[in-house]
């Protein structure tokens, strides 16, 4: 299943210039995994040696470890809990994580993307690696989605971060706007998301590193955009809809019938 690899690099410069260790955290269900997968594929396409670390030991469903084969086909190393993709629901961490982070910090072309579990509970496992992560240049991306029930208000989204910073022993460095409604994402959703995320970033005093815009594709394809997605992309490309640091992302986290 190597159909997942993304041939076109469309990353904004703000993401291409991220440091070698990138931590992705946020409220659960905001889309951390789909964002991390996009980051992994696109950084690999841009010539980086990428390791994606699945640190979600809270929820066994819809996780980056589901994509291990497709990632391997794109030359991306995946470090998952040994129990991932089995029926064992156990909080295990992969033993190779420290080595991968150290290697990325050593200044090679290596990038480590760490996909954390949701909320403060999910971020707890990060605490184990915080000392090592803080030894080198790193980014902690706080992913927000203004259409996630319970974090629809910017203040609600901002209020959740301190708990995650507390349990992870890390401090967020950037906000990622991942406001979307899956394949129902349209111009109004994107516009509203930008307004929302800018306000979250203002409250937290952090830069908004990008706005992720999911482009829905026809069933069974990763490249053939749906007509609605095509229209959305044209609106942004033509400047009709202003989207700074816009990052068009693929929907990798899919349901079995999609």
């Amino acid at each position: 299943m190597n159909t997942e690899s993304n041939s076109v690099v469309n990353m904004p410069a703000s993401l291409l210039s991220l440091p070698p260790v990138v931590v992705v955290l946020g409220h659960y269900g905001v889309g951390k995994t789909n964002f991390s997968l996009n980051l992994a594929y696109d950084l690999a396409a841009a010539g980086k040696q990428v390791t994606l670390i699945d640190l979600d030991i809270v929820n066994p469903y819809f996780r980056s470890s589901d994509h291990v084969e497709a990632l391997a086909a794109a030359g991306i190393s995946m470090l998952c809990p040994q129990s991932a993709n089995t029926a064992l629901d156990a909080p295990m961490l992969n033993v190779a994580i420290d080595t991968a982070i150290e290697d990325a910090q050593a200044g090679s072309n290596h990038v480590c993307i760490i996909d954390a579990g949701g909320d403060d509970v999910g971020a707890t496992a990060l605490g184990r690696f915080s000392k090592l992560i803080k030894q080198g240049d790193h980014a902690v991306l706080y992913v927000v989605n203004g259409l996630r029930e319970l974090t629809k208000q910017p203040q609600e989204a901002a209020d959740l971060l301190p708990e995650m910073e507390f349990t992870s022993h890390l401090t967020a460095t950037h906000v990622v706007n991942n406001t979307h409604l899956m394949d129902a994402t349209d111009e109004s959703v994107v516009a509203r998301g930008i307004e929302f995320a800018e306000e979250v970033a203002r409250i937290l005093g952090l830069p908004l590193v990008c706005t992720a815009v999911p482009l829905a594709t026809e069933a069974g394809s990763v490249n053939l955009l749906t007509p609605a997605a095509q229209q959305l992309k044209e609106s942004i490309d033509s400047g009709k809809l202003t989207c700074e640091n816009c990052y068009f992302v693929r929907i990798y986290v899919k349901k079995p019938w999609d």
């Binding site: 269900g29 996630r148 979307h180």
Partner: peptide
């Protein structure tokens, strides 16, 4: 309005 939710939620 529409929001994103998990089935359980």
């Amino acid at each position: 309005e529409k929001v994103l939710m998990k089935g359980n939620e």
